[in-house]
Design a protein around this nucleic acid. Structure first.
Lengths: 157, 157
DNA sequence: ATATTAAAAGACCTTTTTGTCTTTTAATAA
DNA sequence: TTATTAAAAGACAAAAAGGTCTTTTAATAT
């Protein structure tokens, strides 16, 4: 049962998870020539439909992707735009200080006045930062391109 | 202003942060021959007093440390007990799945069916796991022993 | 015994997060 | 132009996290 989150903190909050999964799914479909709508996105990324709608709306308002109303409408990335690093999305939702603080939660903790965990957490924070900076919605979508669905079939069995 | 969390997710939730700081503070004081009470703990770790009381209560109920009521009372660790790894405390509060899940939030994600971020998150999860397994309340308290206060003076200026 | 001290228990409240639903707006098709 | 489709907007609600306060229990000191 590895990887099944039953309780406890995940790495990101729900809104961020749904946003990242939604964006990647849209990009995957765009690569295939489709513009998915809210109902399809929600079903494919296993998220609540109305909540998904609200989140996609916010992402459009932030300018991360575009939407088209009415028949044949849906969500799409403008092709001329640069790739979108996960960090940009995460920070837009969770704030700029995600994982920037000291692991021990002290209000003041820096190199001159480190708390006991500060030094040990520093490389971890740096790794997370690298990961979300280097991975983009597009790079993840390319990884998924060609797969049957984003959930890799495991949810459908 | 490095290390100041203004908004966004910290590594742990508030209850966990207060619990870890409280436990380390109690152990630091124990090493000096004192048994701190709720008011003192709350003030020194910069946490809400009543909430701190509730949290300390829960920690005692879990058996992590002992308490003595009445005059001269307070909190203390039984000396014969083994060192307490942070992981034990964190899991008691946040559940056993903290940071065990896949970074991308997929319900099913394991080595055979990894999501794009799974492999990249694996070493980070392992580092966090090592950190909270190897560090104990006592090892951190030894680091703090001799310092003026847990907040390293930076909050008092 | 009585007063005092301090933790335990638990009711209650506030804020944030997560989620639902209805109404409105805009695009397309007939 | 009318019907249909689908996103936008925003009100509303449930659940979880975070926090406050009062009352009770247990220990000590006089």
């Amino acid at each position: 049962m590895t990887g099944l989150i039953t309780k406890g903190k995940a790495v990101f909050n729900k809104e961020t998870e749904y946003a990242l999964r939604g964006l990647v799914y849209v990009q995957v479909q765009n690569y295939k020539g489709f513009k998915p709508g809210i109902a399809e996105i929600a079903a494919e990324i296993d998220a609540p439909p109305f909540y998904t709608g609200k989140i996609m709306q916010r992402l459009v308002k932030q300018g991360f992707l575009s939407s088209i109303k009415g028949k044949g409408g849906g969500f799409l990335f403008e092709e001329q735009k640069p790739e979108l690093p996960l960090k940009i999305v995460i920070q837009a939702i969770e704030g700029t200080k995600t994982y920037a603080g000291c692991g021990f939660g002290l209000k003041h903790c820096d190199e001159e006045h480190p708390c006991p965990l500060h030094e040990q957490f520093a490389p971890i924070r740096n790794s997370i930062n690298d990961l979300i900076t280097l991975n983009t919605v597009q790079s993840l979508a390319r990884d998924y391109h060609g797969l049957d669905n984003m959930l890799l079939g495991s949810l459908r069995r």
